[in-house]
Write a protein that binds this DNA or RNA. Structure first.
Ligand SMILES: NC(=O)c1ccc[n+]([C@@H]2O[C@H](COP(=O)([O-])OP(=O)(O)OC[C@H]3O[C@@H](n4cnc5c(N)ncnc54)[C@H](O)[C@@H]3O)[C@@H](O)[C@H]2O)c1
Ligand SMILES: NC(=O)c1ccc[n+]([C@@H]2O[C@H](COP(=O)([O-])OP(=O)(O)OC[C@H]3O[C@@H](n4cnc5c(N)ncnc54)[C@H](O)[C@@H]3O)[C@@H](O)[C@H]2O)c1
Lengths: 224, 224
DNA sequence: AACGGCTTGTGAACGCATGCACAAAGTGAG
DNA sequence: CTCACTTTGTGCATGCGTTCACAAGCCGTT
């Protein structure tokens, strides 16, 4: 009953696998051959037992008494994350943030190929961007369909996000990364991840607040 | 033992409070007076029981049979997140991403004031940016100390992140938002949140992989 | 003032995630 | 081959987070 089917990796683990992958790539570059769970966990900033449990979902990869083969482990994680094939993406909303994302080389080096950059502003049409150019949003569907794009990145204002999302989904996109501060509704088969930078700062603000509260006195304010 | 001290809000709840706050601000703008947990939860995209439990950590705010006073609830959440005072921040690393962040108006409108933009590139010194200008990284400490800055945002390359982080912490910053793909070590009293965009795409990639696996056959690939 | 209808606040059950602690399993020396 | 040493993989306990379900409480009506 508590058995987890092979291939069923917990969500929290998946998020950390991406971190391990990055660390391992660094180790490969440094020609490191093997690494113990203790070392790897230290670099990745996690508990070593947690790391071993995470890796155990991929099967038995390590060698007791030795550790993990860096190259092999890296490949195994990449394969689990579906990174053996490059994934095609489109970016919608080429403003402030969109330009930064388009100019970032880290996506390509990690296996993501952007095949389209779309904006609604007619004045931006044709503007060169990252070895390509900005296309009109009207071409979204044809590019998505002809390239079999599976991931859409939304960097439009919040008001436009749901509309853009609907168009992406209708065209066949099944994963969305949303930078707009808005909640998207999508069918069950579509995954959405959001990046809410203002919320990140507010969470930090909360902890600042909590810390400064503790300094003055040990009293808890209570009304009523 | 299972009692939670008043003021002790779970981490998962804090993250959602930021979302509720944004939704409520929208409702205030639309002159909405009261809202039920069911309505608010629908807009925020969460389960209504979860929302009520989240709000219950702030005290008893709603009115049974009626719902929540939008303005009051908004203020209560803002206060819990420590947003009654504006928070001062600095941004380090004014490249691709740094420019986008500096040009974003959403931070200021949500209570965050950036009092310094720093870069190590001498060629960028004095370049105008967001009603201010780029300062040399050597001025970091004095600006942080004289403004009582509590939040530092790092948008430098990964190699520089730990060094910048150490300087921020030494200067008195106690919260850090890190965009560089690197794990930062900090003292216990400092909070770090990281935004790893490539990891976000990799998590989506995992789910794409999982989805496409289920389509072909029910077989699990296993290498003996 | 009593009642019916609605919505909050929360007890309780469940499931997921974390971390300890150790048996199992491999290595290498002698 | 045996033994001492190292490190993995995991059973188990604990804690956190989510969801259900409902008693408690408030409002408007009669
Ligand atoms: N810039 C940041 O650092 C930052 C930080 C946090 C959140 N965000 C969020 O990211 C999103 C983008 O921010 P930005 O600063 O780049 O805004 P921006 O206004 O600079 O850019 C938005 C772009 O989207 C385009 N657009 C508008 N409607 C569109 C549509 N229907 N289809 C296609 N394109 C459309 C606009 O023409 C514009 O180019 C916003 O939702 C913002 O809240 C940005
Ligand atoms: N641009 C993106 O969309 C994006 C996406 C994901 C992650 N990131 C990460 O965000 C970070 C910044 O990305 P970017 O695209 O803006 O890179 P960038 O190279 O355009 O900008 C980095 C800036 O940091 C400055 N810098 C370098 N060392 C410094 C130091 N010690 N002190 C102060 N400033 C220093 C550089 O002069 C440069 O201006 C990187 O770590 C990158 O991996 C960026």
């Amino acid at each position: 009953m508590s058995e987890r089917r092979p291939g069923e990796i917990p969500e929290a683990t998946v998020a950390r696998l991406a971190v391990y992958l990055r660390v391992l790539t660094g180790l490969v570059d440094a020609s490191t051959v093997t690494v113990s769970s203790e070392e790897l966990a230290a670099i990745a900033g996690v508990n070593s037992a947690k790391l071993r449990k995470d890796l155990s979902y991929l099967g038995s990869i390590g060698t007791r008494g030795v550790g993990y083969d860096v190259t092999l482990l890296r490949e195994k994680i990449a394969s689990s994350l579906g990174l053996t094939q490059r994934r095609t993406c489109v970016l919608v909303g080429i403003g402030n943030l969109g330009h930064a994302l388009a100019g970032y080389s880290g996506f390509s080096s990690r296996g993501f190929t952007f095949v389209g950059y779309f904006d609604a502003d007619p004045g931006r049409m044709g503007e060169p961007i990252a070895d390509s150019q900005i296309s009109d949003i009207s071409e979204l569907e044809s590019v998505v369909e002809s390239n079999g794009v599976s991931i859409g990145v939304i960097a439009t204002p919040a008001e436009a996000a749901q509309t853009v999302c609907d168009r992406l989904v209708d065209a066949g996109v099944t994963s969305i990364l949303n930078f707009a501060p808005s909640v998207l509704s999508v069918p069950d088969n579509v995954d959405v991840r959001k990046v809410d930078l203002a919320a990140e700062l507010q969470i930090l603000s909360f902890h600042e607040h909590r810390k400064s509260r503790g300094l003055g006195d040990g009293l808890v304010e209570s009304v009523g």
